[in-house]
Design a binder for these strands. Structure first.
Lengths: 365, 365
DNA sequence: TCGGCCATGCTAAACGATTTAGCGGCAACG
DNA sequence: CGTTGCCGCTAAATCGTTTAGCATGGCCGA
């Protein structure tokens, strides 16, 4: 825990550049020259190899500390074909649920000595191709990917052919044959529908979630499964497809309310679209939990503080974030292992945005 | 925009490994052997050097594409001493305001061909030292840092001595002599205080923000400046120090309400602590904007949807995120340039959490 | 006294790219 | 016809590290 760097030891360092020179670049070779040893010995000593004598090891480590030696992992990686970098290719990071994911993944990986190299595709396949390509040039030990909408198997296969470990997180491309960590979205949304059914609802809409991504398809499947379990036929006019954003949720709710026979409740693709729907309800003079029932998905922090607090499905994002990191580490260690899927089962969190069905009247305006 | 990789050209590639072999590792040397050229030519051709003939260039680029060549930036960096990596050392990423920052920085940097290497200190100086050390081993072209609380100049000076460009973002260590991008926090909070004063408040508290970080000190200074401008003496019992978290904001508000003579209003270190304070008000049966006035700081998305919508100070986070990226790029290009500070002036956003002063009665409970 | 063994540290060859001096050949020019 | 200049390309050095294999010398046992 020393906080000051001690001055160089009394013995003048032979063959070194001018004595008081700024530290600049200290390399293995520099240390080797100064200590009259070979770079091999320095390298081994710094990594506590048993092949080097105790005394030498201490001398070397002391000198390295004193000179401010910082290893060059790039050079080491060139030799060892291991960078300790894990590339993270996310489709988005401003969405709060992905922030939680990113934080969990970073934490788990840094614990394992890996460092995160970040790329964001912004839901654009072309940009994703570019980004993943750039990331690949750094030769990460593994890729953690949440594919952009509309990605196909080929868009990731390019990675696979490089022999790098690939783990999909949150979203997946079916049939890609990569490890996956995420939540059981079918069950999750079905849970929400079941809750609404139990409250007496029969006309239940679905807001947001589009078919271009696996989560969209699965959550829609959960919606259908929930209806089917209750013997309610699917009414396509109640299904509002769209990306899971506040603005989309709001538009969707407006369209639902404008129907001749509006639903009395809705499940949402994610909390974000639920928030948008809540805003539209407010604007229409309606209150969720009194005039209309709304169930979100994800349970991000904001869900708890809405007015009313949002009933939603908790999906354990940090947990599967860590799981994704673990899968990556396992596959790095053993590239031949069988494909593994880490799937968390979500849980319904009942708050105050749902109630027994109330026929929706047209806006008072 | 081809989506299929064409088969190798008709002419059998001489001296290559078994024809149908999996692509595996294609290197400059491999391409050179296959094309009967030197690695120098390949390297130059791939980078569109004018030193290589048009025909050769096309032939090389075509072959590279066909073979699935992916450059090894690590190797290139070893030679050129330029990695195109920018290290991002943040004290936290789950805080929504930092997500916005991260997104903006990543976007701006990737536009400039840089890739982000991420490290999170979690507000812990020891961990920060470790993290920055690890990041440094990858020899980033620049560091973007939001220092952990309690960091001192020496904690960053270690970076400086490596000759790497360092830019501080959001937070700074005074006297460190590095570039900085952030918002003018003194003015920002003073704006909030002035708003409250204009509404008639004289007893104004401050919630959250601790002296261990520059933003804490500056926002407190803004609080003092605002009071001074109105000729209101500072009452230390109204100042609640603490990290800017929901839980802390809640505790702080509880303590304020428990005072013999509670304030009628408060400014907050950030929106997060304001949310906590709002929760405590609710719990106490009080409503912000009617019984109490509260001003947040940052204007994160959640501020708009609170009930009541939070009056707060908008700080232009994405803007200074981009500014930070630009500063880093400029310093990479010219390490000797004078220190620059990019400071945005915040703006007050009046919503519904403030009102004229109302004497706070003790809880009805 | 000698052979063999251990402990220690060194030599040298990678790893995959970039960069620069220089070379052969050809055309133009005086 | 000799010189010059340019074009297109190559050879070789270099970046900082790791690692297999080898050299050295001391010590022990026979």
């Amino acid at each position: 825990m020393d906080e000051t760097i001690p001055p160089p030891p009394g013995a003048a360092h032979p063959g070194a550049s001018p004595a008081g020179a700024p530290i600049g670049k200290v390399t293995l070779q520099g240390l080797a020259r100064e200590l009259g040893l070979s770079t091999a010995t320095i390298s081994l000593a710094l990594r506590d190899s048993p092949m080097v004598a105790e005394a030498t090891r201490l001398k070397v480590q002391e000198a390295a500390r004193a000179r401010g030696y910082v290893a060059n992992r790039g050079a080491a990686a060139l030799r060892t074909a291991r960078t300790n970098i894990v590339a993270l290719g996310l489709h988005d990071i401003v969405n709060p649920s992905f922030t939680e994911l990113l934080a969990a993944v970073e934490d788990a990986l840094s614990e394992a000595g890996k460092t995160v190299l970040l790329g964001v595709s912004q839901e654009d396949v072309a940009r994703q191709t570019r980004t993943l390509g750039t990331l690949a040039e750094y030769r990460p030990d593994a890729f953690l990917v949440s594919p952009a909408a509309h990605s196909r198997v080929e868009d990731l296969k390019a990675l696979a052919s490089t022999g790098i470990a690939v783990v999909q997180v949150t979203r997946e491309i079916e049939g890609s044959g990569f490890d996956f960590a995420g939540s059981d979205d079918v069950t999750g949304v079905a849970l929400g529908v079941a809750h609404l059914v139990a409250l007496g609802h029969r006309r239940i809409g679905m807001i947001g979630g589009f078919g271009a991504i696996s989560t969209g398809r699965k959550r829609f499947a959960g919606y259908k499964a929930g209806l089917a379990a209750a013997g309610i036929p699917l009414d396509p006019t109640l299904v509002m497809e769209g990306p899971g954003l506040r603005a989309e949720g709001r538009k969707a709710m407006a369209r639902l309310l404008a129907l001749d026979e509006p639903p009395t409740a809705a499940v949402c693709f994610n909390d974000l679209s639920a928030f948008g729907a809540l805003m539209e309800l407010q604007a229409a003079g309606l209150t969720a939990g009194r005039d209309f029932s709304l169930v979100g998905y994800d349970d991000i922090e904001e869900a708890r503080v809405w007015h009313p607090p949002l009933t939603t499905v908790h999906t354990f994002i940090p947990e599967y974030g860590r799981a994704a990191a673990t899968l990556a580490l396992k596959r790095i260690a053993d590239p031949g292992r069988p494909v593994e899927r880490a799937v968390m089962t979500p849980e319904l969190v009942v708050r105050a945005s749902t109630c027994a069905p109330v026929p929706v009247k047209r806006r008072p305006l």
